[in-house]
Amino acid sequence: MPAVKSNRPVNLTMGQVLAVNLRSPVAIASILHRLSGVIVFLLIPILLWILDKSLSSADGFTYVKEHIFGHIAVRLLVWAFVAGLIYHFVAGVRHLLADAGYYEELHSGRVAAIVSLVLSAIGIVAAFIWIVVL
């Protein structure tokens, strides 16, 4: 009986999936785009509560400014939200350009993914300096 090549799908372990995907900047950009969307989605209620508290009265604003933003953990939380928003925006623009027919080929798609990663990294570092350090 001859051996027949099977075209059936193969279940890969998580290690095999990561080994394949971590070599491609396009895959990394796609995974981070999804992750940043989840981070932004999960942090919106917390930041809306802080905004509501700060806009409720002058005392509420003072409380948020002195007590809530006085903690480094809250500033890191806000930075995580802003970092997710920056990356999600930049990657979203890249996806919109791809939907419009630009940067769809293999090489140009890789270049666009690398450019979006670099631009996002610059914005995220700037946001860290602005929110956490200053």
Rank of each mutant, 00 (worst) to 15 (best):
S120L: 02
L96S: 09
L85P: 01
I28H: 07
P25H: 02
A19M: 12
V10K: 04
K5L: 04
I124R: 01
G101I: 05
I50G: 01
H88Y: 11
L32Q: 10
K65W: 07
G60Q: 01
T62Q: 05
S6M: 02
V78H: 04
L106H: 13
L97V: 04
L119R: 07
A112T: 01
V90W: 04
G92H: 03
S6Y: 00
V118K: 14
V132Y: 12
V20C: 15
G101C: 07
Y102N: 04
R23N: 09
F41Q: 01
L32G: 09
A113K: 01
V64L: 06
L51I: 12
D59C: 07
L97W: 08
I44N: 07
W130F: 07
W79C: 01
Y63L: 09
P45H: 00
A98P: 10
V90P: 03
H71F: 10
L96D: 06
H88T: 10
H88C: 09
H71D: 05
G15R: 11
W79N: 06
G123D: 03
S56T: 08
H107V: 12
H95M: 09
V26Q: 12
G109A: 06
V125K: 04
S36C: 14
I129E: 10
H107K: 14
S120Q: 02
I114P: 00
H67S: 08
H33V: 14
V115R: 04
I114Q: 06
K5C: 01
I124W: 06
R110A: 14
N7Y: 02
S36A: 14
V20L: 13
Y87T: 04
G123N: 03
P9C: 00
W49K: 14
S116F: 09
L51T: 13
T62N: 07
V90T: 09
A100N: 04
L85I: 03
R34F: 14
R110H: 14
Q16V: 06
I68S: 04
G123K: 05
F69A: 06
Y87N: 10
W49D: 13
L117E: 15
K5A: 02
M14G: 03
L43R: 00
R8E: 03
K65G: 07
N11L: 15
D59R: 08
L43D: 00
F81A: 00
A121T: 14
A126Y: 05
R34D: 05
V26A: 08
I46Q: 08
I28S: 08
L18C: 02
V90E: 06
S116Q: 13
V74I: 13
G92A: 02
M1P: 13
A19I: 11
G70P: 08
I114C: 07
I31W: 15
L119F: 10
V4N: 06
V4A: 10
I31G: 09
A3W: 08
I72N: 11
A19W: 06
V133W: 13
N11W: 12
S54A: 15
V82F: 07
